[in-house]
Every structure is written in structure tokens, then in C-alpha cells.
Nucleic acid binder design. Sequence first.
DNA 1: TCCATTTAAATTGTGTACAATCTAATTGAA
DNA 2: TTCAATTAGATTGTACACAATTTAAATGGA
Lengths: 147, 147
Amino acid sequence: MPSELPKLENQLCFPLYVCAKEMVRRYKPLLDGLDLTYTQYITMMVLWQQSPMGVKALGEHLYLDSGTLTPVLKKLEQKGYLTRHRSEEDERNLLVCLTPEGAALAEQAKEIPHQMCACLALPEEDIRLLKTALEKLMAAFSLPQGE
Amino acid sequence: MPSELPKLENQLCFPLYVCAKEMVRRYKPLLDGLDLTYTQYITMMVLWQQSPMGVKALGEHLYLDSGTLTPVLKKLEQKGYLTRHRSEEDERNLLVCLTPEGAALAEQAKEIPHQMCACLALPEEDIRLLKTALEKLMAAFSLPQGE
DNA sequence: TCCATTTAAATTGTGTACAATCTAATTGAA
DNA sequence: TTCAATTAGATTGTACACAATTTAAATGGA
């Protein structure tokens, strides 16, 4: 059997790449009201669970490095949603801390997951299956997930 | 039932976002030998199927607009993998055409899908299931897929 | 104690993505 | 025919992503 040319539609990577982009695009109108981008939104989501948090820990939750996070966090600081201060015990650590405004944003964000699901127009069952399959892939990547 | 705070691990978007990024990252060492980035690779993949092709058609295959494609195509032109010329019938159309070097690259690329599958360390069955689930999501997004 | 090593962020450079706008070519209805 | 609308790409501006390097702070063994 001759080796075929690589074709877009034969590979896992392409629908993954397209769906991820499209998902982020679909979040935009929902997040505009909170003045957040998608990356800023997932960052806030981690902080709503725990604040203050160091940049390193934040990066481990989000799979992002400081090269990406530093400008995102500076932006969120500008917007008044968080503060950035060096830890007193260890000056290498920068502690990110929600402001009251940032914490309050969680209230407004509560409906976003429902709105997103509605926007997907896919049965709950299919969403669950897809999520499970993706988590399996993360595991295969040896990326620890959730908590 | 009270509305809960949005949590990263409860949502479809996050594993999708993380897996897509990781997948692209895993392609990098495989593509370095071809001097291609992931975006350049999927662009070449479309051209290996059909060349010449207009920027608009290329964008429809890749779900990318001219804002993204223009610099990618200029880069691939620099590398000597394709040429860019305006159509003579309609000067608005820019025809992208593989060079012999660009066409020859397909040979070298043939093994990449296998290498990628191997790198995934996930049973074929799981990969198929995930791909099907993603294509279902694309359909729900009303994104046409395949050809 | 002292300095090589390690660690945490920040910085730099390259490459996407995409919205919005711009420009030039073409089309089509009055 | 003519010019308003449409179309195809390019451009501009903003925001990630990530590799590689840099800087400053802590650590730990000789």
C-alpha cells in the first residue's frame, strides 16, 4: 500500500484546531459584557477559586507560561480586576490577588457556561462524550487535569 | 439549585483549548525538518491537493481569513515553496501556486501523520471516536468539513 | 560563609488569529 | 453607460502563545 499524501480531513489535529478557535470566537460576544477576552476569562476563573495565587501556580492550572501570563495579568490589573505584589517571604514570587471588582465579576459570569452550552446546539450527551475523549487525550499527553 | 461559579474543569472549552495547543506543540519537532510551522503545514497540505488555488478558496478550506493567510503565504513564498500571482482574468484574485520545491516537500511529509499518531499514545479507536465527536461539533457550529 | 545552582518572572523575538478598515477590481441595476 | 455595491486581498491594531534569554532572589553544599 503506497503511502498517501497527508490530507487535512484524515487527521485528528485539524478539527481539534478548528473547533478550539471557533469555541474561543463564540465566547467573545458572551465575554464582551465583562470586558474580558477568553484568556483573561480562564485566568479569572482560576482566581475565583483561589486568590491570591502565584504566577507559577496559575500557569500550572492554565498550562501557560509567564511569557503569556505576564501581559495578561498586567492587562487585568489595568482593568482593576486584580493586583500584583511580590511575596514578602520570597521576593521571587508574584502574588496575584482579586480586587472586589474582580471578585464581583464572578456573579456576572455565572450564566456564561449555560449560554455557551445553548450556543453549541449539541446534545448534552455529545458534549459529555467529547469532553471525556479530550480528557483522555490530555492524559495521553501526560498533562494532569482538573484538581 | 444555586448557580455555581464557573469552574475550568466543568467546561468543554478548556480541554479543547489545551489539547489544540498541545497538539500544535507536538507537531513542531516533526515539522522543523521541513522548515514549516503548523499553520504553514496545513496550508501546504491544501496546496498538495490542489495548486494553483486562490487565497479565498484556501481560506475556506483552512477557516482562515486573509489577515492571517497573507503573512503566512508571504513567508512560504520567501522559503521558495510557492509563488503568488494575480489572476489575469480577474486581477482581484491572487493565485497561489506550488513551486517544484513546495511540491517535493509532500514526499518528506508523508510520514508525519504516522509519527504524530505514534506520539499520541492513544488507541486508534479513541482517536477515531474523538475525531468523530469533533466533526459533530463542527457540524453543530455549521462549519462544513472534509471536501 | 560563599558562590554555583536553582527558581520565578519578565523580556525579547517570531508567528499566528481575527476584527475592522482600506484599496483596487469587477459587477450590475437604473 | 455609469456609478453604487460587491468582492478579494492587504493592512492595521490588539491579543495571545511559546521558545529562549535575562534578571533577581533564594538555596545549599564545600
